[in-house]
Computed example of a mutant assay.
Amino acid sequence: MTKFAAGASAMLLMMTAGLFVWMGAHSQDNLIPEAPPPPEKVETEGLPEAIFDDETIGPQPPTPPKAYKASREERRFNRYDRNRDEIVTRLEMMSSRTKAFKALDTDGNNLLTFEEWAVATSDRFTGADRDGNGALTRVEFRTTRPKRTASKCKC
């Protein structure tokens, strides 16, 4: 019971102190400074005025050319083609992807052309399209995901 009485009296004491602080802050005069007078109006007589006509504005700038929108496969191919010579070499492929590179390089010349890349992708799509209707359902699309291997932690 003494703890309750001590807590209640401490709370009453804190409320009284807060009341005194609030009353003291409220009684102070907060003077707001007056705003400065507005600036005087400047005379604009004698100043030149701009005339906007075709001679002063000039001709319209040329419209920029339309940017070529690369397909998804071309963007993927370009990620590997570092020197932009339209050929992906073994050095340009990541070293962990050597096995995949050899599978895509059908003529075995250690050069991967866009056609070889596109044929492999088309074959992958055809293999996933089980019903042969030219469209992948969610279940069919899920089969195109690369197989995950157990990753080794390099902690």
Rank of each mutant, 00 (worst) to 15 (best):
F4V: 02
F141A: 12
Y80C: 06
D105Y: 01
D85G: 11
Q28V: 01
R84K: 15
K66S: 11
K41A: 15
F101K: 10
N78Q: 08
W117P: 02
L112M: 14
K41R: 12
T89F: 01
C155M: 07
F52Y: 02
V42R: 11
L13F: 03
H26F: 08
L111R: 15
M1R: 08
T121M: 15
K69Y: 00
R130T: 07
P33A: 10
A25K: 12
T56G: 04
G132M: 08
M23L: 15
G7A: 11
K154S: 13
R79K: 14
M1A: 14
P146L: 07
P61L: 07
C155E: 09
E116N: 11
P33Y: 05
K3F: 12
A10Y: 01
M93Q: 04
S122Q: 15
V88N: 02
T143M: 08
E34R: 10
L47Q: 08
T16P: 00
E45S: 14
S71D: 10
F52T: 01
P62H: 06
D54N: 13
F77T: 01
R76M: 10
E55Q: 15
E116I: 06
Y68R: 08
L47C: 07
M14P: 00
D53E: 03
M1F: 04
M23Y: 12
E34A: 15
K152F: 05
T121F: 10
D53A: 02
D129N: 09
A100G: 04
P38F: 02
F52W: 09
K69I: 06
P146W: 00
I57V: 12
T149D: 09
N83E: 00
A35Q: 13
G46Y: 04
V119N: 14
N133E: 05
P48S: 06
A118L: 11
S96Y: 08
V88H: 05
F141D: 01
A8C: 00
R124S: 13
R84Q: 12
G46P: 05
K66L: 13
A25Q: 13
